[in-house]
C-alpha cells in the first residue's frame, strides 16, 4: 500500500439472502482480514442487509481497462444467439 498512514483498503461483498450471489457493496479500511470482516458487518450489514460477508484486499482486484471497452464488449452486442432467451423458465425458479 501507499505510505499515507492509511490502513489497507478492502472490498466488501455481501450475500443478501441464501441463494443469491455475493454482491459488491463498497469498500473500507482495516488492518487485517478479521478486522475487515467486523468492520464490514458494522458498516455494511447493520440494517439486515446480509447473511454472509466476503472481504478481499483491494490490491488483489484486477480490473479490465476502460480504453479496451470497444474490443472487450462491443463484439458481443449483435450476437443474440449467445443469450439463452428461447427457453421458457418456470415461475418457481426465482433467481436466474
Amino acid at each position: 500500500m501507499k505510505k499515507d498512514n492509511q490502513w489497507p483498503l478492502w472490498e466488501v461483498f455481501i450475500r443478501s439472502k441464501q441463494g443469491l450471489n455475493h454482491k459488491h457493496v463498497g469498500s473500507l479500511h482495516a488492518t487485517d482480514q478479521q478486522m475487515a470482516i467486523k468492520n464490514a458487518r458494522d458498516v455494511y450489514a447493520r440494517r439486515n442487509e446480509g447473511v454472509s460477508i466476503w472481504v478481499v484486499k483491494s490490491e488483489h482486484i484486477h480490473a479490465s481497462s476502460p480504453d479496451k471497452n470497444d474490443c472487450f464488449f462491443d463484439p458481443a452486442n449483435d450476437k443474440v444467439y449467445r443469450h439463452p432467451t428461447f427457453y421458457n423458465i418456470p415461475d418457481q425458479i426465482d433467481h436466474m
Binding site: H29, A30, N39, R46
Partner: peptide
C-alpha cells in the same frame, strides 16, 4: 479514530 471504528462504537 477511524471511520469504521466510529460506526462500530456507535452501533
Amino acid at each position: 479514530p477511524e471511520l469504521e471504528q466510529d460506526i462500530a462504537l456507535i452501533n
